[in-house]
Lab assay of single mutants.
Amino acid sequence: MIVFVRFNSSHGFPVEVDSDTSIFQLKEVVAKRQGVPADQLRVIFAGKELRNDWTVQNCDLDQQSIVHIVQRPWRKGQEMNATGGDDPRNAAGGCEREPQSLTRVDLSSSVLPGDSVGLAVILHTDSRKDSPPAGSPAGRSIYNSFYVYCKGPCQRVQPGKLRVQCSTCRQATLTLTQGPSCWDDVLIPNRMSGECQSPHCPGTSAEFFFKCGAHPTSDKETSVALHLIATNSRNITCITCTDVRSPVLVFQCNSRHVICLDCFHLYCVTRLNDRQFVHDPQLGYSLPCVAGCPNSLIKELHHFRILGEEQYNRYQQYGAEECVLQMGGVLCPRPGCGAGLLPEPDQRKVTCEGGNGLGCGFAFCRECKEAYHEGECSAVFEASGTTTQAYRVDERAAEQARWEAASKETIKKTTKPCPRCHVPVEKNGGCMHMKCPQPQCRLEWCWNCGCEWNRVCMGDHWFDV
C-alpha cells in the first residue's frame, strides 16, 4: 500500500509500505531520502505521535493516508518512550493509558441525555464484534464512529474520518494533550489543546475536521460531520418502519427517538411537499423529531443533505422563500418566477423588478396576487391545505425507538455506581478489583462488596467470576 509523507509540512511524497511495516522502518526510509538522522524524526498522525514499535496496521493507516513527519531533536526523557523501550505506560498493571487514536474515538455516547454525564468515556458498548469485510486488514473493525456528507465523488452519507490540525499553522502536526470525549470537544473551536510539532510553531489549540472515509482524499478535501447519525450498535428499532437498520439518525429530543435514513428521507420529502418545515429565527429551515417532541429541531442543517441534490435544492429554495415571508415580504405569483420581494408595508401595487435578471417585471396586487387592478379585489380565496398535519407515529413504536432507553438498560445490566462519587462504572470481565475512572475520584473498590478495596476482598473473592 501507499502512504503519503509530508516532511516538515512540505509537499508530500509517496512511500510504499506493508501492513506489518513498523513506524521506525518508515522513519528509516524517510531519513534516507531526506539525509537526516532517523532518531530525530517524529511521525504524527490523527493528533498522535506514533511509536517506533507500532506497525502501519496498528495505527489504522489506510491506503493513501497522509502522515506528517517532522525533524525535531529529542528532548530529555522522550527518546526512550518513542523507541518502544522502557515506557512506564506499558508496564503490566499500570494505570496510565495511551491517548486514544482519533481513528478509534467514539462519540456516540454523547447523544445520551444530559443526566448521563461521564458515560462518553466510561461506558463502552460490546456491539462492535462484526466481522471485518472481505479485503480489510485482519482485526480491523467495521464499526463506524462518525458519518459525514461527502460532496465529492460519493454525493451521499458516508463513514467519516476525524482529523485534527494546529489552529495556528493549519498543519496536521499537532499532538493532542488528551483525546475528545464528546461532540462539544470536536465542534467547539479551541476547546481542546495540544502541542504543535512543526518547527518554530508555538500553536497549542486544536482544530478538528472530518474527511470522507470511503475514498482517498487530499489535504484540502473536508466534509461536514453529521453528528446525529450513528451506527445502530444498540439495535434500536426505527420509529417509523420498526426495522432494525444501521446507520440511524438520533433526534435530540428527551427520548432520543431513532429513525433509519430511508424513513428520514421520506419524512423530509413529505414535509417538504406540504411546505411544513419549521422556520426558526436562529436555526433556519428545519424539522423536529418525527414524533413531534418539543425542543427537538435539527440544529445542523447539513443533515438535510440526505435528501439528495434535487430535493436539497428545493429545500434551500423553500427556506429562502419562507425567510422572505417571515420578513413581511411577498413572492411573485407569476408561474416560473417566484422571486422574493420586500415592498413597503402599505404598498398595494407590487412590481417584480426586472433588474439584474432576477425579476420578471410582472405587476400584481398584494392582496389577491392577481395582475394589478384598481378598486376592490374580486375574490380572495383562503389558501387550502395549509394546516399542519401531524406525522403519524405509532405510540408503541415510539416507545421502542428510544436510544436513551437502550442506554439505561445497558447501564443497569453492566454497571454499578462507584461507592464514593456514584458514577456508573462498567465491568466487562476481569477481577473484582475496580478503579473509578473519574479523575477527581480514582477510588479503588470491590465490585462484589461495593466497598473500598481491602485485604478481605483480596483474599476471599479477588478473582471470582
Results as ranks from 00 to 15, higher is better:
Ser205Ile: 13
Ile122Met: 15
Cys431Phe: 04
Asn58Phe: 11
Cys360Asp: 03
Arg104Leu: 08
Ser22Trp: 01
Phe45Lys: 08
Leu287Ile: 09
Leu283Thr: 09
Phe7Tyr: 07
Arg455Ala: 15
Gln438His: 05
Pro439Ile: 07
Gly340Gln: 08
Met432Phe: 05
Lys349Met: 12
His422Trp: 06
Gly450Ser: 05
Val248Gln: 02
Ile188Gly: 07
Glu49Pro: 02
Trp445Asn: 01
Leu443Gly: 05
His257Ala: 00
Cys238Val: 01
Val423Ser: 15
Met432Glu: 03
Asp126Phe: 05
Met434Gly: 03
Thr242Met: 14
Gly85Ile: 12
Glu452Tyr: 15
Tyr318Val: 04
Val36Gln: 03
Asn428Asp: 15
Ser136Leu: 12
Asn58Val: 05
Arg75Cys: 09
Ile306Glu: 01
Ser141Ala: 08
Arg305Thr: 09
Trp54Tyr: 06
Glu96Ala: 10
Glu49Ser: 01
Phe13His: 03
Ala383Asp: 10
His11Phe: 04
Glu310Cys: 06
Thr415Ala: 10
Val164Tyr: 12
Ser19Glu: 10
Arg245Asp: 04
Met432Pro: 01
Met434Phe: 04
Glu207Ala: 07
Met327Pro: 03
Asp464Glu: 15
Pro437Gly: 08
Val350Tyr: 04
Gly375Tyr: 06
Gly77Cys: 14
Cys446Gly: 01
Leu26Phe: 07
Asp87Trp: 13
Pro73Tyr: 07
Thr237Arg: 14
Ser296Lys: 01
Cys241Glu: 00
Glu426Phe: 08
Ser141Phe: 10
Tyr372Val: 08
Glu321Gly: 10
Pro153Ile: 11
Ala371Tyr: 10
Pro216Tyr: 09
Leu187Asp: 03
Thr237Val: 09
Cys95Tyr: 12
Gln34Asn: 14
Cys441Tyr: 01
Thr168Ile: 09
Arg396Glu: 15
Gly203Trp: 00
Leu249Tyr: 03
Gly114Tyr: 10
Ala92Gln: 13
Leu261Glu: 03
Pro202Leu: 10
Gln63Gly: 08
Gly354Tyr: 11
Gly139Cys: 13
Ala134Met: 11
Phe24Gly: 11
Gly459Lys: 15
Asp62Ile: 09
Arg402Gln: 10
Cys268Val: 09
Trp183Pro: 01
Phe251Leu: 02
Cys352Ser: 02
Cys253Lys: 01
Leu112Asp: 14
Asn448Val: 03
Val269Cys: 05
Tyr315Asn: 01
Thr386Glu: 12
Ser255Asn: 10
Ala230Lys: 15
Arg33Lys: 10
Glu79Arg: 09
Ala91Leu: 12
Gly450Asp: 04
Ala92Asp: 12
Pro281Leu: 08
Lys129Asn: 12
Asn144Pro: 10
Thr103Pro: 13
Asp18Ala: 12
Tyr372Phe: 10
Asn273Gln: 04
Leu261Trp: 04
Arg156Cys: 14
Ala406Glu: 12
Leu443Arg: 05
Glu367Ala: 07
Val43His: 01
Pro189Gln: 07
Ala383His: 12
Val456Lys: 15
Phe251Cys: 01
Cys169Val: 00
Glu98Cys: 07
Gly338Val: 06
Cys436Thr: 00
Phe209Asn: 11
Phe208Ile: 06
Arg104His: 13
Glu96Phe: 09
Phe208Ser: 02
Gly354Met: 10
Arg275Pro: 02
Val456Gln: 15
Thr173Asp: 13
